[in-house]
Amino acid sequence: MVTYFKDIYSGLVSLFIGMEVTFKEFFKPTVTVQYPYETLTMTEKYRGHVELIESDEGKPNCVVCGLCQRACPSACITLAGVKPEGEKKKVLTKYILDFTRCSLCGSCVESCNFNALEFSKEYNLASTRREDFIFDLLQRLEARNK
């Protein structure tokens, strides 16, 4: 009989303790970010999709060695280049990133020995069309330069 009432009492007390916790939380400031209206800046090391890095002359650093293409586990990079007459380096003519397949692993950036690729800080990529995610990085580079 005593335990019966003791159980009821301790149970009730435990409920009030719980309510006290939520009561305190009630008056604390909110911690969330109102997404479409507020956004966060990404951290420095954030791994978005890749972008080409340009050299001082405004040309991509890429030498079309194809290492990134080979390192990519999901084969989402296609690149092509031509070797103009009399130049040592190849010149990049096409760099397509199929973002629909990309898993943001960063292997391409890691494999690059020429400082030609970096991560973008874009994170709210959304579209209803698949084609929107086949990025032509050269075009994007030009668009950025404008």
Partner: peptide
């Protein structure tokens, strides 16, 4: 958990699938 994810993101560059 967000606190942890923020820390991990600052180092690894992503929030869930760190690799």
């Amino acid at each position: 958990r967000e606190y942890i994810l923020d820390m991990l993101e600052a180092v690894t560059g992503s929030r869930l699938t760190y690799c």
